[in-house]
């Protein structure tokens, strides 16, 4: 097995953790619980994109990961502002 395939295995395992977090997003009794689950999924998506970029030898995956990290941060801030009653 070529070494770069280990990164593909890591990426697939991260998807399983995303599904675990998704259970909390579905169950979550309050809205902030769901937002926390969403935030966790975003971080895991960034990590798995970095791993897949190394696995497929494509730099573009990592560029997308940078932009995804920043945009998901902005989305979290907006939801937080909305929950505070700022918008």
């Amino acid at each position: 097995m070529p070494f770069s395939e280990i990164f593909l295995v890591v990426g697939s395992l991260l998807v399983i953790f995303m599904i675990l977090s998704l259970i909390r997003a579905v169950l979550g009794p309050t809205i902030p619980d769901r937002v926390v689950a969403l935030d966790t999924i975003n971080t895991l998506v960034v990590a798995s994109m970095v791993a897949l970029g190394a696995g497929y030898k494509e730099v573009i995956y990592i560029d997308v990961a940078i932009v995804y990290a920043i945009l998901s941060f902005i989305a979290t801030l907006y939801i937080a502002k909305y929950l505070e009653g700022g918008i």
């Binding site: 309050t30 902030p32 937002v35 926390v36 935030d39 941060f73 979290t76 801030l77 939801i79 937080a80 502002k81 929950l83 505070e84």
Partner: peptide, 10 residues
Amino acid sequence: TGAHAIARAA
């Protein structure tokens, strides 16, 4: 920073 924002909003 995102975690802090969620905690404050909660």
